[in-house]
Amino acid sequence: MIDRSAWAEPGVETLHPGVHRIPLPLPSDALRAVNVYVLEDLAEDDGLLLVDSGWATPEARRALEEGLAAIGRDLTEIRDILVTHVHRDHYTHAVELRRSLGCRVHLGAGERRGLELLNERRGGLSFLLRTLCQAGATALAEEVRPLYPDDYDPRDWAAPDHWLGEETLRFPGGGLRVVPTPGHTRGHVVYLDERRGLMFSGDHVLPHITPSVGFEPADPGGRPLADFLDSLHLMTRYADARLLPAHGPVTDSVHARVTELLAHHEDRLRATLTALGDGANDAFGVARGLTWTRREVPFGDLDAVNRMLAVNETVAHLDVLVLRGRTTVETADGTHRYARVR
Results as ranks from 00 to 15, higher is better:
residue 46 D to W: 03
residue 207 P to D: 05
residue 267 D to L: 05
residue 5 S to Q: 13
residue 177 R to E: 13
residue 9 E to R: 15
residue 221 G to H: 07
residue 14 T to R: 15
residue 173 G to M: 02
residue 8 A to W: 08
residue 268 R to C: 09
residue 98 R to E: 14
residue 237 R to F: 07
residue 185 T to I: 06
residue 103 C to T: 13
residue 282 D to G: 07
residue 51 V to T: 13
residue 64 L to S: 14
residue 119 N to S: 13
residue 116 E to Q: 14
residue 66 E to R: 15
residue 314 T to K: 02
residue 258 V to L: 05
residue 316 A to Y: 05
residue 56 A to P: 11
residue 82 L to C: 12
residue 190 V to F: 00
residue 31 L to E: 09
residue 328 T to M: 06
residue 32 R to M: 10
residue 32 R to N: 08
residue 258 V to I: 03
residue 149 P to W: 06
residue 71 I to Y: 04
residue 110 G to K: 01
residue 12 V to D: 10
residue 50 L to F: 12
residue 1 M to T: 12
residue 36 V to E: 13
residue 149 P to D: 13
residue 281 N to Q: 11
residue 132 L to K: 04
residue 295 R to Y: 11
residue 178 V to D: 03
residue 251 T to P: 01
residue 133 C to R: 14
residue 73 R to H: 09
residue 100 S to M: 13
residue 273 L to C: 06
residue 122 R to A: 14
residue 297 V to G: 00
residue 180 P to S: 05
residue 168 T to F: 00
residue 235 M to L: 15
residue 80 D to E: 11
residue 260 E to S: 07
residue 176 L to N: 06
residue 57 T to P: 12
residue 234 L to K: 13
residue 331 T to K: 07
residue 179 V to A: 01
residue 270 R to L: 09
residue 168 T to D: 10
residue 147 L to C: 05
residue 254 V to E: 02
residue 150 D to F: 14
residue 194 E to D: 11
residue 192 L to T: 02
residue 63 A to C: 10
residue 126 S to H: 15
residue 219 D to G: 01
residue 41 D to A: 13
residue 192 L to V: 02
residue 144 V to T: 08
residue 101 L to Y: 07
